[in-house]
Design a protein around this nucleic acid. Structure first.
Length: 649
RNA sequence: GCCAGCGUAGCUCAGUUGGUAGAGCAGCUGAUUCGUAAUCAGCAGGUCCGGGGUUCAAGUCCCCGCGCUGGCUCCA
């Protein structure tokens, strides 16, 4: 019979494996990098015998996404083998591949130590060096139960019981056999580029009611070079850590005395925030939003009415005033609804877009707090769009375009995800259908690619999540657009339609940056602390060579400040090199040196982020900075007025 | 909240088998007047996270809190 390999016809004989056939169509060198084969949409082992139905076969190379998956999964098996060898009483559970690597969960009587990890890794290297082949066999349910039961592998028995199938595939390499769907690499010798990273706790089957297991994480790549690159990326992420940079750049701090998850903004950080918030206010007004503001605490009764008291109570802070219960707001929607209800609304009034930079408090579980990206008090750039059903789609398009513009401004790539109805949800089928269609049609209209997350919507409506990708290709959930069927119902929101009938409006919750805190945390890491000039707390610093130049430095500072530049002067009696270094470390974009020559010429010597641009007139410097500030806005077709938050003259 | 690790000066970190706390940077004072990433000297700086315990003696060992870090679960 004939098999097509990557479009090329190759003769195959009955009983041959995929690998054997493939070897005739590929060079020896290429063949070494093949870890599995793709047949249709199935991935199969190289060592499996050719299947009659498979007449078109594609090799899966180690460095392809699917190939990496196979390598990582196989590495997990090798790790389990090593652990069982070193710690025979450890019980194995599951061990899949994940983004960038793999893990395996074990149940063992004592915690694994870093020394254990080293020993496990060394054992793994020995297994890799021995290059044991992976083999697969199919066992009946009874045989599988007998095998794992005999080994005391209770977790595997539970998996078999829950899967409830009649047959199970078992993969063996060396002396280790695991219940597994496969496929696997042809041999352990292919798994050279790996490293174990950490041990962490993880609940059996992800349920916190279950026993906590020990999860060992590792990373694995097709080549040593890629492994190095990944480890380097981890280092780079550490270097950019916003928690470190926040202290180094004096932007913000956390204090035990204030409480965990409570950000304290220092002058420079608060200034960056303010600039960002000013930008948001302007953009929202431009797009037809109304800026509103509600109180920080609202009566408990109101939270009961909204359903937050029943569904979100554990995450809320409560207080009492004159024996009346109050809840600190975890969301901004309630006062926005009260504004809507403050008078009768006509169909002509809609859509109404209420925007609030709303400070919310959420009592997040202590273990989830993380720098600025997960806090207990944060400000959302929150808006609620209340509109007629026929306006939903247009509103969603408007929001997606808003997100697109803002992400472009910061140079973020992003991914869109549409989340549909979850099992536990409220609202009629018709409502869900309408809203989900509106979201999807809007996505199609804007023409951006998106993924569908089946069943991942909120219980009160479908949503679009936007995940931005930062400079290190990490994904962050920031913007989200959510349809809501409950609140208009519960608060009996209505408008009078053109025919005089009272109708129910649709409500959309949406954020663009998500939370100012998280977004700034992401921005700090994205830019490694070096904010674009329009956002930099200090845009320019004037440095004197000696105190003979103080007067000119003052003049330079005043000249720029009067033109809206956030500028300061460093007149300290220090060597120029020292002051340059300090400005550079503090990521001040423009360093303006003044010495005898500049006093003479009346200008300044410009150093932009480490690059010496030479001597310029003050007009040139001001124009340079202004253009630098406006550049990201121009790129996205947005306007920028260069006078936001200038320093005092 | 759960599992594990960690907590020493503003920051980064030393601190032997338990014997009474140290460096660099930053700060202050003085000298130095200097051209694009660190001038020199001196001074000051500590509830060794908090509270109990063991001990003649605890930064060090034990227990209980609190906080942080990495995960799990949850999420902007």
């Amino acid at each position: 019979m004939q098999v097509s390999i990557a479009g090329q016809a190759v003769e195959a004989h009955a009983g041959e494996s995929f690998g054997e056939v493939l070897a005739r169509g590929l060079s020896k060198k290429k063949m070494k990098d093949v870890v599995a084969v793709r047949c249709g949409d199935r991935l199969l082992d190289l060592f499996k015998p050719l299947e009659p139905g498979c007449d078109g076969v594609e090799p899966v190379f180690a460095d392809s996404p699917a190939g990496l998956d196979v390598i990582r999964h196989s590495a997990a098996h090798v790790m389990a083998e090593a652990v069982k060898k070193l710690f025979p009483t450890a019980k194995v559970t599951i061990g899949p591949s994940v983004e960038n690597g793999f893990y395996y969960d074990f149940d063992y009587e004592r915690p694994f130590t870093p020394e254990d990890l080293e020993a496990i890794e060394a054992e793994m290297r020995a297994i890799v060096a021995a290059d044991h082949p992976f083999r697969c066999r199919v066992a009946s349910r009874a045989a599988a139960e007998e095998l794992f039961g005999g080994m005391g592998e209770d977790y595997k028995l539970e998996l078999i019981r829950d899967l409830g199938a009649e047959q199970y595939s078992l993969y063996t390499q060396g002396g280790f056999t695991d219940l597994c769907r496969g496929p696997h690499a042809p041999g352990t010798g292919l798994l050279g580029a790996f490293k174990l990273l950490s041990v962490a706790g993880a609940y059996w089957r992800g349920d916190e009611k279950n026993k906590m297991l020990q999860r060992i994480y590792g990373t694995a790549w097709a080549t040593e070079k890629e492994l190095k690159a990944y480890l380097h990326r981890l280092e780079e992420a550490k270097r950019r850590d916003h928690r470190k940079l926040g202290v180094a750049l004096d932007l913000f701090s956390f204090s035990d005395e204030a409480g965990p998850g409570m950000v304290i903004w220092h002058p420079k950080g608060a200034l960056v925030r303010t600039i960002l918030e000013d930008f948001e206010r302007k953009e929202h007004l431009k797009r037809g939003y109304h800026i509103v503001q509600g109180p920080q605490i609202l009566k408990q009764e109101l939270w009961e009415k909204s359903g937050h008291y029943d569904n979100y109570r554990e995450n809320m802070y409560f207080t009492a005033i004159d024996e009346t219960g109050y809840g600190v707001k975890p969301m901004n929607c309630l006062s926005h609804m009260l504004i809507y209800k403050s008078r009768l609304r006509s169909y002509r009034d809609l859509p109404l877009r209420y925007f609030e930079l709303g400070l919310v408090h959420r009592h997040e579980r202590s273990g989830v707090l993380h720098g600025l990206t997960r806090v207990r008090a944060f400000t959302q750039d929150d808006a609620h769009l209340i509109c007629r059903p026929d306006q939903v789609q247009g509103e969603i398009i408007g929001v997606i375009e808003f997100v697109r513009d803002v992400m472009g401004l910061f140079g973020f790539e992003y991914e869109l995800e549409l989340s549909t109805r979850p099992e536990k949800s409220i609202g009629s089928d018709a409502d869900w259908e309408l809203a989900t269609t509106a979201l999807e049609t809007a996505l199609k209209t804007v023409g951006l690619p998106y993924q569908i997350n089946e069943g991942d919507g909120a219980f009160y409506g479908p949503k679009i999540d936007i995940k931005l990708k930062d400079a290190l290709d990490r994904r962050w959930q920031c913007a989200t657009i959510q349809c809501d069927f409950t609140l208009p119902e519960r608060f009996d929101l209505v408008y009078t339609d053109s025919d005089g009938e009272r109708r129910r409006p649709v409500m959309l919750h949406r954020v663009i940056l998500g939370s100012i805190e998280r977004f700034l945390g992401v921005l700090i890491e994205h830019f490694a602390g070096a904010f674009p000039t329009w956002l930099a707390p200090v845009q320019a610093r004037v440095l004197t060579v000696t105190d003979a130049h103080d007067a000119h430095a003052g003049a330079v500072k005043n000249f720029l400040a009067a033109r809206g530049v956030r500028v300061e002067a460093d007149l300290r009696n220090e060597k120029l090199g020292y002051k340059v270094r300090e400005a550079q470390v503090e990521k001040v974009p423009y360093v303006l040196v003044v010495g005898d020559q500049e006093v003479e010429s009346g200008g300044a010597s410009v150093r932009l982020r480490g690059e010496n641009l030479g001597s310029r007139s003050l007009e040139e410097v001001a124009a340079l900075i202004a253009a630098d500030c406006a550049e990201p806005f121009k790129r996205g077709g947005m306007s920028y007025r260069f006078d936001s938050c200038a320093s005092a003259v």
